[in-house]
């Protein structure tokens, strides 16, 4: 929707969240440049360097996306109010959820059931991915597709996605924060703004807010599954050396 019904303004907080969104094209070109550099480096190191596997490519994309997620978080007014210790705890708790949300929201707008669209613009055919995948990855992809379908039915919009990111980042269930009360209050403010937004933009759909919130535990469950899968791949030495991705995996399991 471009504008709410007359007289009902979009909550200021939601507009602020949209303003803080990163430029997708900028992130895409940064990550693409990084991948290009990486492949060049690999081929110069060895004459018969193997091309990156789909899984390897997706790990590198996830790693680079994590860098942009940290950049995004640092740009948020609410986040800046916290000490680095609390910032780290929040990010350790939600990095995989934010990665899954990034993936899911791209898929929702991609609209194709048989391929995955990466932030780099590359399309990965699901058929070929699943042909090499074990049961765990197949279940993960299946779960992702179901969530995408739910959100497509709801026609999740970009302002709601922006709110989701804050609800995920400022998770009031994170323990041992120095400023717990603040995180809880941000969560309350964001959910209040999202409720107000859905009521003003989708007044005919009063259940929308609760239906949106129901998707968050599903996203959480998927991210736990994805982390378990990545851990397993990491322990078997199959995750390429991705600094931030592996650091996050270690931090959470420590």
């Amino acid at each position: 929707p471009s504008a709410p019904p007359a007289g009902l303004p979009v909550p200021a907080l939601v507009l602020e969240f949209v303003r803080c969104e990163q430029d997708e094209l900028q992130v895409r070109s940064k990550i693409s440049a990084h991948l290009g550099h990486l492949q060049q480096e690999q081929s110069s190191r060895s004459a018969k360097a193997e091309p990156l596997s789909t899984f390897g490519l997706m790990c590198h994309v996830a790693d680079q996306t994590l860098f942009s997620i940290v950049e995004w978080a640092r740009s948020c007014t609410f986040f800046k109010e916290l000490k680095v210790g609390d910032q780290m705890k929040l990010l350790h708790n939600c990095w995989s959820e934010l990665l899954v949300l990034d993936y899911i929201s791209r898929q929702v707008h991609h609209g194709k059931q048989d391929s995955i669209l990466l932030i780099t613009g590359q399309e990965v055919e699901l058929g070929s991915l699943l042909a090499q995948a074990g049961v765990t990855l197949a279940e993960l992809v299946q779960g992702g597709q179901e969530l995408v379908q739910h959100l497509q039915e709801l026609q999740l919009d970009r302002r709601e996605i922006a709110c989701f990111k804050y609800l995920i980042l400022f998770n009031p269930d994170v323990k041992l924060l120095e400023n717990q009360v603040y995180v809880e209050s941000v969560y309350e403010q964001v959910s209040g703004a999202l409720l107000e937004y859905t009521l003003c933009v989708y007044p005919q759909h009063v259940e929308r807010f609760s239906q949106l919130l129901l998707r968050l535990p599903e996203l959480r469950a998927l991210s736990v599954q994805a982390e378990d899968y990545l851990c397993y791949k990491h322990l078997s030495g199959e995750v390429p050396c991705n600094n931030l991705l592996i650091e996050m995996l270690h931090a959470k399991r420590a």
């Binding site: 940290v70 680095v84 910032q87 780290m88 931030l244 650091e247 931090a251």
Partner: peptide
């Protein structure tokens, strides 16, 4: 464990974010 978090801490600490 501290070493594990070095990169994230660096990313959060750098520049103006104090």
């Amino acid at each position: 464990k501290k070493k594990d978090n070095a990169l994230l801490r660096y990313l959060l600490d750098k520049d103006d974010n104090t």
